[in-house]
């Protein structure tokens, strides 16, 4: 038997909203430690890895590990039927999981709706992502990162990110001309969510597709801060951390001339 009840249902709505453009079908791997998902976009240029800890649900019950093969478009349609204040419960019979039950209860509990989503068999390759000691780790307000991606997209569909000890610089070059945004670390200790920090092993400069980065910023509502991790000739990691877990986006760089 699998049952996971989340009082902040809105969080699940936002999470699914932040991956729906990137991934169509995916397996939700459920175990006693929680729910995780890993999937690449169709072009295999980006990968999303999502993890929700069992402690974030109450109750959480997963008698044995199993996978829920889900079409995310269909799941998103059903999630639209949940109110932002609703408590959301996911239930499945872990032996013959051919459908996922979703329960939406409003706060005063006089309105309860129940949906069943047909599950699919999805055989997806699972990539092993080694723990990496990145050349540069940058923390910044997630809204700031979203704005930089949106602004520089008017100039080009690629952005070069340069990180040095005391600056992260985003540069775009295109037909109309060029644009760049430079951020310096802040020391505002009174407003931690506004802070910008740079942890530098060595300077790094990489180029990425802004189309994908803009897509990743759908995770902005999940967290005040976003973490960018860069290493030479490695995919960029963009992480939005929540109390219950995290959503990580990986993007392969553009390399060579």
């Amino acid at each position: 038997m699998f049952e996971a009840r989340l009082t902040q249902g809105a969080l699940l709505k936002r999470l699914l909203d932040s991956v729906k453009e990137l991934v169509t079908d995916a397996n939700f791997d459920c175990s006693e430690t929680g729910i995780s998902l890993q999937a690449m976009d169709n072009s295999h240029v980006a990968l999303v890895s999502l993890s929700l800890r069992a402690e974030g649900f109450n109750p959480y019950r997963c008698d044995r590990g199993f996978s829920l093969g889900v079409n995310l478009n269909s799941l998103n349609k059903i999630m639209k039927c949940a109110g932002n204040e609703d408590v959301i419960t996911l239930k499945a019979d872990d032996s013959s999981a051919d459908s996922l039950c979703l329960l939406f209860e409003n706060s005063s509990n006089e309105r309860v709706s129940e949906y069943e989503l047909k599950l699919m068999d999805i055989d997806q390759e699972h990539l092993s992502i080694p723990e990496t000691d990145y050349d540069a780790t940058v923390m910044m307000p997630s809204a700031e990162f979203q704005r930089i991606c949106r602004d520089l997209m008017v100039v080009s569909e690629s952005v070069t990110i340069d990180v040095s000890k005391d600056e992260i610089k985003f540069t775009a070059e295109g037909e109309l001309g060029t644009g760049n945004v430079k951020l310096k670390p802040t020391s505002t200790i009174d407003k931690p969510e506004e802070s910008i920090t740079i942890e530098l092993g060595q300077t790094v400069s990489l180029q990425f597709s802004l189309k994908y980065l803009s897509n990743f910023t759908r995770g902005t509502p999940l967290s005040d801060q976003v973490m960018l991790c860069l290493s030479d000739n490695m995919p960029l990691l963009v992480e939005y951390k929540m109390d219950i877990g995290y959503i990580r986006y990986y993007l392969a760089p553009k390399v060579g001339d």
Partner: peptide, 14 residues
């Protein structure tokens, strides 16, 4: 122009 790489150029299957 630089070439867009793939995630699978860096991370392999488990």
């Amino acid at each position: 122009l630089k070439k867009q790489h793939k995630i699978t150029d860096f991370y392999s299957e488990e």
